[in-house]
Amino acid sequence: MTAHAIDTYIDGQLVAPSAVQSWEARRAQAVLKKLTARVGALGVAELLPGVDLSALDTTDPRAVRDVLVTLKSNLGHAGLYAILKRELALSDRIARIAVTASRGGSTHCGIRLVAADCSASEFGAWFDDLTATDAETDMIAACPDHYLLRGLPDGRQEVVETTGGSPTPTRFLVDYTTGRNASIPTNPDYPVQIAGQAVLDDGLVVGGVRHQFRDVNGAMEALLTVEFPRLFPSRMITEHRWHLATEFGNWIDAFRQQRNQR
């Protein structure tokens, strides 16, 4: 591993950074196309003043990321709710059906990252702080499929995102006080744990997360795992591994940059 690198393992196999970047670029273009089509030319001019989308270098992930963050931020929570209203209603119904049909069973989606120049405890604290301080820009910038991520006054996190290979975005809340109830096993070799249950507004549990971190030979090793109802489509589970690789890779980069600026 070279300095500042992030090695991503999917199905136990090391994947090239370019593969993760290609996934992010594809999803970024899809999300940008969706949002700009829905607000129209006049809306784009209002939300992205001075930005010429025809001149945007779509091969530059940072450039597209910045445009998406600006667009989502200027739309605001209410604007995003309005644009995604029908899709969120549909995904809510689908999630409820999947939970009922799964009869309490679950399936897991996981990857492993190894990040140089990174401390498990420091990164874990930084990540926790994203929700505690409601750092929305850092949260939504990490993945193009993040439409809205914010910390709520009760300590939970509201998430509106396209999960894996789902055709529609979904909305849920992550309650990090209930991580002990997640079905994802705890690995005692990983002392830093970030875990919680994903619930709908009425408290129905639709999934969970358990992200586990440790320091190994000067680098941080992360086991990143998401729990879904057992009968969720397999493609959705498979694609979500790339979502995890993208968001945590970008979060790790953001952590390192902010730490080095202190």
Rank of each mutant, 00 (worst) to 15 (best):
S121E: 12
S102Q: 00
F123R: 04
V209C: 12
C143Y: 14
G179E: 03
V206S: 08
E161T: 09
D154V: 11
M139I: 01
A115E: 01
D138Q: 13
F123I: 04
A120I: 01
S183N: 12
G105W: 00
Y176N: 03
G208R: 00
D189A: 05
A182C: 15
S102N: 02
I97G: 07
E136A: 14
P169C: 01
W126R: 10
I97N: 09
Q212G: 09
D175W: 08
T137S: 11
F127K: 04
A195C: 03
H108V: 08
Q193P: 03
H211T: 12
R112V: 13
R171K: 07
Y190M: 12
P153Q: 01
D129N: 15
A98E: 13
D154E: 10
A141D: 02
D189C: 06
G208V: 03
S102D: 04
R103C: 12
I184S: 04
D128Q: 14
Y147V: 09
N181W: 05
G165P: 09
D145G: 04
A141W: 01
G104S: 12
D202G: 02
S102E: 07
I194R: 15
A195S: 15
F213E: 02
V99C: 13
P191F: 11
D201R: 10
A120D: 08
A219R: 07
G104A: 07
R214H: 02
G105L: 11
V206P: 06
D189P: 06
G179F: 01
I111T: 01
H211Y: 01
I140L: 05
V159T: 14
D154K: 10
A125G: 04
G218H: 01
H211G: 05
I194V: 12
G203T: 06
R214Q: 11
P188A: 03
T168P: 02
T178H: 09
N187V: 06
G203V: 05
G203W: 00
G207A: 05
G155D: 07
W126P: 11
G179T: 08
L204F: 10
V216F: 02
R214L: 11
P191W: 10
A98S: 06
T133F: 04
W126Q: 00
S106Q: 12
P167N: 05
L130M: 08
A195W: 01
E158F: 09
F127V: 09
A125S: 15
N181S: 15
F172D: 00
F127Y: 14
L149A: 09
L204Q: 13
A142K: 02
V209M: 12
V114I: 13
D175G: 00
S121V: 08
T163C: 11
L130V: 04
L204V: 12
G155M: 02
N181I: 01
D134P: 10
A132Q: 14
S119V: 01
D134L: 03
T168D: 03
D189Q: 11
C143K: 12
A182N: 07
A101N: 02
Q197D: 08
S106N: 11
D128A: 13
Q212W: 11
S121W: 04
L152W: 04
A141K: 00
T131H: 08
D154M: 09
R214W: 05
H146Q: 03
G165F: 06
A115L: 06
R103P: 08
E158V: 11
S183W: 07
C143R: 00
G203P: 09
Y147W: 15
H211P: 07
D202N: 13
N217P: 06
P191K: 00
T131S: 08
D138S: 15
